[in-house]
């Protein structure tokens, strides 16, 4: 079936012939692929368009498929030889070399324990290879990446929610942060790590974030107010 921008689409649908005659360039985002002269949908969701020629499918899913360059939060589950195995929620565990930390050498190994949480960037993510993580940028600096400090809490949510709270239009993290100081690491794989001063604050923020899943941006603001007021009342 042919579909337009804004429609609910299913895998196998074909995008109604976009204007290919102006420069003929088309940028296909997630959920789309080219087959012969047609553009096919590969996931179910809502077809979106930005600018003149950028198309993608907005889908609600929970399973993460690694994408090169994404920053993710993962749990170190195993140490084998000179790599760590990290669970990032994808079908396969990602590997993280112990040399991929700032200032790490063969002699000076980083201090990473099994069960630790790491915030890392995907260096390699292809269908046929195991995803590979690094905790340094191309200059060898760690920036915000690396092993996350002890304590805090890690939880999982849908990928759509991650994109929603990272959207510049969403003020959620800012509003909450204005009243409750917290550290957060948001991974594109749907995992979030959160640390506050007290357990009740952590529980409150975790629940506020999970609740935001089906709210509009301005409803989120009032939800944040509710949560902050509730915390003050405790």
């Amino acid at each position: 079936m042919e579909v337009n921008v804004g429609d609910v689409v299913l895998p196998g649908d074909v995008i109604q012939a976009p204007n290919t005659n102006d420069k003929g360039k088309l940028i296909l985002g997630p959920g789309l692929c080219r087959h012969m002269d047609e553009v096919l949908i590969t996931t179910s969701g809502v077809l979106r368009k930005k600018g003149r020629n950028v198309y993608w499918v907005d889908s609600h899913r929970k399973r993460y498929v690694p994408v090169k360059g994404d920053t993710v939060v993962g749990v170190v589950v195993n140490r084998s030889g000179d790599t760590f195995k990290v669970d990032i929620g994808s079908s396969e565990q990602a590997s993280l070399s112990y040399l991929a930390f700032e200032g790490a050498t063969k002699k000076n190994r980083p201090d990473v324990q099994i069960g630790d949480i790491v915030f890392a960037k995907l260096l390699e993510a292809s269908r046929d290879l195991e995803p590979e993580l690094v905790c340094v940028d191309s200059y060898g600096k760690k920036g915000k990446l690396g092993v996350l400090p002890e304590g805090g809490f890690i939880f999982t949510c849908s990928l759509n929610l991650i994109r929603k709270i990272l959207n510049p239009k969403c003020q959620m993290l800012k509003i909450l942060g204005s009243e409750i100081p917290y550290d957060i690491a948001v991974g594109m794989n749907g995992k979030l790590w959160l640390k506050t001063k007290s357990i009740k604050e952590t529980i409150a923020i975790v629940n506020a974030i999970l609740t935001a899943e089906h709210l509009q941006h301005h409803e989120i603001a009032s939800l944040c107010d509710d949560v902050i007021n509730a915390l003050k009342g405790m």
Partner: peptide, 15 residues
């Protein structure tokens, strides 16, 4: 089954 991280364990018990 995905492994539980140390921070989850300690957080739940503390809570």
């Amino acid at each position: 089954e995905s492994m539980l991280s140390t921070c989850e364990k300690s957080f739940i018990t503390d809570a």
